[in-house]
Amino acid sequence: MRRLVIKNPKTIRGKVYDYLREKLLSGEIPPHEHLIEAKIAMEIGTSRTPVREALHNLEFEGLIESIPRVGYIVKPISEEEVGEICEIRATIEGLAASWAMGKAQEKLVAELGKNISISEDRVSKGEVRAFVDMDAQFHEIISKHSGSQRLLELAQTLRRHMLRYRIQSIYTVDNVLRAIEGHKGVLRAIEKQDLEKVHQAIRHHMEQSKKDILRYAFKEAPEERK
């Protein structure tokens, strides 16, 4: 692990958190890896306090887990958890879309359309990693326009748990293009104000995301296994 350069003491906690989070999401720190507080502090050149706080926040995000008398380890990829999160997200986001359509249809369509245009532009320029944020923004637009803070918070929590699985598969161009097509399908259904098709489009998009994640994580989708 390369040494982290921290110039501003006031930002140590945030920098340590961002640094470790990127290592986890990129796969540089692999699943099942034991995270030793003192060792990390020594490697990146800081005290143990900001490392401890960063690890606590990463546990909250679902990226690592605390095991009694062992400490923190990187959570392994679970096929069951991926399927569960995708199923719940499809239901939650379908509800969010139905509420958003009833409260801010025009703004919803405009913002989703703009998001897709920017996503396509960034990907066409080879900025595939930028889609991670654009994907998050697309789904957050729907949740925000639902008008429900509880629904937004629930959607954000589920997305955070999904990110550790999604991040690697979403770095491949084919998967990104499929995801953008999924977004377009959702937008088309919203434009038509066809609630049934909106639910179908969101569920299809989530199902495709699940397949892409599992294909990357396990080298092949479940239905393709022998």
Score class of each variant (00 low, 15 high):
L25S: 03
L25R: 04
G27R: 04
G27W: 06
E28T: 10
E28P: 06
I29E: 05
P30I: 06
P31N: 06
H32N: 15
H32I: 10
H32G: 03
H34T: 09
L35G: 05
K39R: 14
A41W: 08
M42V: 12
M42A: 15
M42T: 12
E43M: 11
I44T: 07
I44D: 06
S47P: 06
R48M: 12
R48V: 15
T49Y: 15
P50E: 13
V51L: 10
R52W: 14
R52E: 13
E53P: 08
A54D: 07
L55V: 02
L55T: 04
H56D: 15
H56S: 15
H56R: 15
E59P: 09
E59W: 12
E59D: 14
F60P: 06
F60G: 12
F60N: 15
F60Y: 15
G62Q: 03
G62Y: 02
L63T: 07
I64K: 02
S66Q: 13
R69A: 13
R69M: 13
V70H: 01
V70M: 05
V70F: 07
Y72G: 05
Y72Q: 04
V74D: 08
P76I: 08
I77Q: 13
I77K: 13
E80L: 12
E80F: 13
E81R: 07
E81I: 10
V82H: 02
V82I: 12
I85E: 07
E87C: 10
I88M: 05
I88G: 00
I88A: 03
R89G: 11
A90L: 04
T91M: 08
T91Y: 04
I92C: 01
I92E: 00
E93S: 04
E93A: 05
E93P: 08
L95F: 01
L95S: 02
L95Y: 00
L95H: 01
A96M: 07
W99D: 09
W99N: 09
A100Q: 01
A100E: 01
A100I: 01
M101V: 12
M101E: 10
G102Y: 03
G102F: 01
A104K: 11
Q105A: 13
Q105E: 13
E106Q: 10
E106T: 10
E106R: 09
L108M: 02
L108C: 00
V109I: 13
V109C: 03
E111W: 11
E111I: 03
E111T: 03
E111K: 10
G113M: 04
K114P: 02
N115G: 04
I116W: 01
S117A: 15
S117T: 14
S117V: 14
